[in-house]
Design a protein around this nucleic acid. Structure first.
Lengths: 204, 204
DNA sequence: GCCTATTCATACCGTTCGGTATATAGGGTA
DNA sequence: TACCCTATATACCGAACGGTATGAATAGGC
């Protein structure tokens, strides 16, 4: 009895769409419109499936959003974790800013940052969404602060400059970058923003 | 015939609510939830009037939003125009950052910036809202750039630093400030952000 | 007192929202 | 072939959406 294929051959009728492709479509819609601005009609249209298929495969709208957020962090925010490996705090900041810039200059993806959009665009009923995004952001902030703590211990910062404050400052610039990118700023303008931020970066 | 009161005594039944108070209520709702997140039910509840009264007095939801945006700029963003009168570019930046900080520390107003919220939180049908906010922001940007042009002409900037780039950089920090304020950052953290930004402000 | 003009409160309009019941189609297993 | 399990497509659900028709209430002008 051949059992080699048991994992790849489930029992019933096989689904006719690709899970990853559908999720990528959902991500695009959430990215363009935010959680509440994304309607099931637009989601199913972009994903190329019907509503029952969506609910069977992903649960509901909120669960779909979580999975899309996972995909976003995994594919689009990968530069954030790799940037932490840079040798100095300034190099980390440079990688983060240039990574964010490069992402915003992509011609195929929506503009702005999904995390920023989702943490802002919500009425009272979308409070859980806001909380989830805040949780993930806190994790990113903690990672960057840990890296800046090391830099401070290595004597990279001017006196009186706390790693916590510098982390918050850098995140603010990146959030401003995504806001401006979503508001129609040109690549040249965004590049100016990054270069200016790097030119004033504090050194000892 | 006494005509002194003709302006204050219109013909029909007098309205039973105060226009400014109602508009202030609408502003709070839009500020908390964004344009699309603000439902007519929540608006009328906070304004203390019924839907027909709202439509008679303000037109429709979009016109109400425009009037609320006017009120917001007039009352909450007044510090932005007065900040331009500061003697140096650094003093302008300091007034802007401290003004934004003070506004975010208000305990009675919602957190975050209405302009940022409105420029981000919108699906396809709210495109006109986004465009209107972008128009107003462009006007603020132009005013700050004009002021920085004067500062550059006065020799306040390091070589190679364009007023356009510095304006964009300062706006990014303020936008990041409002994002973080809306995401639950404490007053201490926001103050750290402002102080750090000022400590790295470029001088010649 | 009567007419006109405006506001108020209620109830309703058609549409869209997120989510589902139901019936059919299609593949593995026996 | 018969059976089981899952995915598909259609049609539908109650609720909430932005916006209005309608009639009663309240003021000024004559």
């Amino acid at each position: 009895m051949n059992r080699l294929c048991t994992l790849t051959a489930p029992k019933g009728r096989p689904r006719e769409f690709d899970l990853d492709e559908a999720l990528a479509g959902a991500l695009r819609v959430f990215w363009r419109n935010g959680y509440e601005g994304a309607s099931m009609a637009e989601l199913t249209a972009e994903m190329g499936i019907t509503k029952p298929s969506l609910y069977a495969a992903f649960g509901n709208k909120e669960a779909l959003f979580h999975k899309a957020l996972d995909l976003y962090e995994r594919e689009k925010l990968a530069y954030m974790t790799s940037a932490l490996e840079a040798p100095t705090a300034r190099a980390v900041a440079e990688r983060l800013l240039r990574g964010a810039l490069q992402m915003q200059m992509s011609t195929c993806d929506p503009k702005g940052c999904l995390s920023v959009i989702s943490s802002v665009a919500c009425s009272a009923e979308a409070e859980p969404i806001k909380a989830e995004v805040a949780k993930r952001r806190a994790s990113s902030e903690a990672a960057l602060m840990k890296r800046f703590d090391e830099a401070k211990a290595a004597g990279e910062f001017p006196d009186g400059l706390e790693s916590h404050a510098l982390m918050r400052y850098l995140f603010a610039i990146m959030q401003g970058l995504s806001i401006q990118a979503g508001s129609g700023a040109t690549c040249t303008e965004l590049n100016q923003l990054v270069e200016t931020s790097l030119s004033v970066w504090p050194t000892k």
